[in-house]
Design a protein around this nucleic acid. Sequence first.
DNA 1: CTGAAAGCGCTTACAG
DNA 2: CTGAAAGCGCTTACAG
Lengths: 337, 337
Amino acid sequence: MVMNSERATIEDVAKRAGVSIATVSRVVNRIGTVSEKTKARVESAIVELNYYPNSAARGLAARKTYTIGLIAHEIDGEFFQPMLRGIERVANDHGYDVLFHSTRPDARKRTSIGEHNADGVIVFANGMTEDQLLNFHLQNFPVVLLHRTAPPGLSLPCVTVENQTGARMMVDHLIENCGHRHIAYLAGPKDHEDSYWREIGYRESLAAHGIDEVLVGEGRFEIQASKETVTRWIRERVVMDAIFAGDDESALGAILAVNEAGLRVPDDIAVVGFDDIRLARYLTPPLTTVRAPIEDAAAEAVNQLVRLITTGEAEPLTMLPTELVVRQSCGVRKDHR
Amino acid sequence: MVMNSERATIEDVAKRAGVSIATVSRVVNRIGTVSEKTKARVESAIVELNYYPNSAARGLAARKTYTIGLIAHEIDGEFFQPMLRGIERVANDHGYDVLFHSTRPDARKRTSIGEHNADGVIVFANGMTEDQLLNFHLQNFPVVLLHRTAPPGLSLPCVTVENQTGARMMVDHLIENCGHRHIAYLAGPKDHEDSYWREIGYRESLAAHGIDEVLVGEGRFEIQASKETVTRWIRERVVMDAIFAGDDESALGAILAVNEAGLRVPDDIAVVGFDDIRLARYLTPPLTTVRAPIEDAAAEAVNQLVRLITTGEAEPLTMLPTELVVRQSCGVRKDHR
DNA sequence: CTGAAAGCGCTTACAG
DNA sequence: CTGAAAGCGCTTACAG
């Protein structure tokens, strides 16, 4: 097969099939009516010429880019993979490509693109400031929020998981089934809503059980930061039965700190997490955590975004259920029961 | 500020600044010559109208999309993050967006895009078959290979890391410094070159030390598969001092298997890995491994791709150095020294 | 230093 | 069921 290095255009296909470009466009896009005979001719011309529509031309003419953007602040943690996987899979199912854009402060962002080279965007957590979100909204640009809610006054569809309920279940379990009373919380980044709601759930459970001893430390959803906080607590002889880490990464850090202090999980201090990342079951001891359907949430965000792009409306709030996963790191106090 | 919901075009800017669209184009693209005065007028018009060039139009006219594609088979493992981070960062520095495309068999791929909606692509490992690669090459489409080399007969630039040397260093270390003689290798996926070269390095080291006892099992770069293989070996009473896992994920699986069998790492069986993923230092015991500059390799691939796109040529082969990272999981046999 | 105009490869009413 | 033509918003020689 000798191939021309130039790409075939709709013109070439039309010529070869002996029809107009309008007809080629119809069969490519499966709209309008085309006789079976013509359709067959066009289709074989497409195959013979290895024709792919030029998406820039298509985008210009139809005012659609068939791509959606994913805007995130950082590519970090185990969390990111299932999210990207969910987004990419569903986007492709809908015929969209996904453009990835990180908003690290050091990014030069010379590209105006990322913001405008897509039919809509999914904004993950703190990937954009409220001002930027407002700006999109003013331009009528389709946005769906993932793992965060809209700024006050702005109604942007969002999909997230039941953080508060999940945290509540977890702390209830720690208190009721494991017999822990002195429970610390390792918080995530301040501007990260997942952490915010998890903390609410934590406080709610304590209050419901008449425990007013609240201990919150900084974990930033990072191994290192969490480890340092827990190490400090241990050094300062803070009384703790259990540590509820804001996410599984933090739980990892907490476990490391406990081990390094010569103590044992869960016998001396129990450690539990949130998310149920891939690694959770493989830790020693296997991590008790709350399963968050990260990939599903991401997939649903794409569904809503596509709906928003095509119909102009979307579900204001989708909240996916979380589930308690009891393994061994939560322990059971000997004096319990 | 009252904003029109319609996006400003180059026409609007030209009108407002009292110039032609050609002039606006010149200042936006910083090419040609424009008097300071005109330039200032145009620039303020741009700001006032919040103008962003339409990239589809731009792409059509200039035959450039200013996006590069990343084609990978799966989004999986700890490996993926630093790679994507490196690609995204450098691409942005060069003014490119990055389109992500996975080639899972279940992907519908209705989008011809991904393949043609970019100025070039980076193909990670087994993300594309040799046939597909050949097809790109025949169309003169810029491709840079990451963590794989070109199919025979095809000269495609590639960037990878020193897998063979790294593996050789590791096994040399195991033999010479730790005193191990019975060393098993946990191989990655068959079509994954990283694993192939690491195995070569492993065999080379054994041969160089006059050890002809070679033991290779399937790890597939996965925790679970690696765990199963090692569990089987232990059950079959295979004699092993050490396991050289094809990557750190596999090492994790191996450690789990050893622990579950009631044995200890490294006292009973040493376990080492390759990559030095984020978690490696946090394992118990901290993992001895070979550091692979994953993010740097990805960044370099983008540099080469941009060079290929703009100048038509690129470095045929870039191989980044790897480095032995000795922590504790490799142990030292008591009878050694 | 600046503008008029052709053209990039499509989609989409509008005719017929 | 099919085609001619306008237009999407840019870039790029070509004049001047």
